[in-house]
Design a protein around this nucleic acid. Structure first.
Lengths: 138, 138
DNA sequence: CCGAATCCTAAGCGATACTG
DNA sequence: CAGTATCGCTTAGGATTCGG
């Protein structure tokens, strides 16, 4: 990516986190680092929709270039690659939690004028789970 | 727009503000409400790039549906239409300021590993100008 | 196990022309 | 002045196939 000039800092943040799966990726790596296929399966579970391998790789590469995600390749056979959050990635994650709080407030108004809006994970849950992995619904 | 289910509240916020000009529109209407062509000219000035009429109308309609922007039509000839922020729009604007602070911090790291990144308006300026319109660079 | 390469579709954005 | 209507380009995302 080529960074040059922005009207606001907000535009830089948006450029970095805009991508269908990026917010979910960042939040998935918060609890603990994950291997590639582990992350892929996790994303599918929490979002109820499969992510194409090409897309996951693309978005991980971009997040890596933007210093949000760190890629660790163990160079073994068979391969083992682990993805984790950088310090900036952790800050973006914290910001996404705050963003979720704003979103849930907006949803109340939008829902009253339209239809109920459901969130799988509230920002309260996100805060609560910051130090512990979510349990899979077995 | 059809709201249904989201993984996080963050995804709702992103859906609402994602659009090339939406963040700029929201920030432009903060200082004071603006008429259509006034807003159009303002956006072109601060972003150094013209916005297509079709696109501006589209994004304004969407922001109106999402309860971010209020459209006031005076039904006169010639027409006079004024756009302003709703309460939720104001909250989103405040959030964009916070987002700019985060972005400017990220930029320091990205710039050191890449190239310098310039912001036309810092979040400090945004705060300072919340109660007063920006001066045009004459 | 973790990808790369290719092809395809839908949507965002923009240019242009026209209108009450 | 504040829009609509139409068309074309570009890009993000996804399905599929192949490789170290």
């Amino acid at each position: 990516m080529k960074y040059e000039r922005y009207h606001f800092g907000a535009n830089l943040v948006l450029e970095i986190i805009s991508g269908k799966w990026k917010p979910s990726i960042i939040c998935s790596l918060d609890a603990r680092p994950k291997r590639y296929n582990e992350l892929k399966a996790y994303l599918q579970r929490v979002n109820g929709q499969p992510i194409a391998q090409k897309v996951l790789t693309e978005q991980l590469r971009q997040l890596e270039n933007d210093l949000i995600v760190k890629r660790t390749d163990y160079h073994t056979v068979p391969p083992k690659v682990v993805y984790s959050l950088t310090d900036d990635g952790q800050r973006i994650h914290d910001f996404l939690i705050e963003m979720s709080r704003v979103g849930e407030n907006l949803a109340q108004h939008l829902a009253s004028a339209d239809q109920p809006i459901a969130f799988d994970y509230s920002y309260q849950q996100m805060i609560h789970h910051q130090k512990g992995e979510l349990h899979a619904k077995s």
